[in-house]
């Protein structure tokens, strides 16, 4: 297993790292880049805690080989806040609604909610529930999570 040089953009910054063919993108993000906001949940693509955006689309970092990141733009939960640390409106909505219990699913939920709002501004409750259905919260705080996505969508629409 020879190491490979892989170049990608991580939260807007160009990166070049050395990875093995069997390195998962999730482990590169957490262990090498020390960005531990992205969570290692089930490891088999069923819980959504490891969701990151690749080229603007949410995918599961636990099922992506790091080599596949070559040339792509990756955004993690740490990359959502704007310059100066201003939170994304969706992060604000999670705080306002108390949409966090244990917090383990929260990064995945926010990355999914953000992707939905980018695709579908002002989604309905049904659209939110459908889009988030691959992201599991075992505290079952879904009501406030769903409400947060709806609220952030409404707030962003009002601001436009």
């Amino acid at each position: 297993m020879n190491d490979r040089r892989v170049r990608f953009t991580l939260n807007g910054e160009p990166r070049e790292v050395s990875v093995k063919p069997n390195d998962l993108l999730l482990n590169v993000i957490r262990d090498d880049e020390k960005l531990t906001g992205t969570k290692y949940g089930c490891g088999i693509g069923e819980c959504g805690a490891c969701t990151v955006h690749i080229d603007g689309r949410p995918v599961l970092a636990c099922l992506e080989l790091a080599v596949a990141a070559e040339g792509r733009e990756i955004v993690t939960i740490e990359g959502l806040a704007g310059n100066g640390g201003a939170l994304d409106p969706l992060q604000e909505a999670f705080l306002d609604n108390g949409a966090v219990q244990c917090g383990f699913c929260t990064p995945g939920m926010i990355m999914m909610g953000r992707a939905l709002l980018d695709e579908t501004p002002e989604p309905s409750e049904a659209e939110v529930r459908d889009y988030l259905r691959g992201t599991l919260c075992r505290c079952t705080g879904y009501a406030s999570i769903v409400q947060s996505v709806i609220d952030a969508g409404a707030k962003e629409a009002a601001a436009d």
């Binding site: 693509g45 959504g48 969701t51 689309r57 949410p58 995918v59 599961l60 099922l63 992506e64 999914m112 992707a115 889009y131 259905r133 691959g134 992201t135």
Partner: peptide, 9 residues
């Protein structure tokens, strides 16, 4: 089919 993230891949 599965969930949104799996469908993307």
């Amino acid at each position: 089919f599965a969930g949104q993230m799996v469908r993307n891949t």
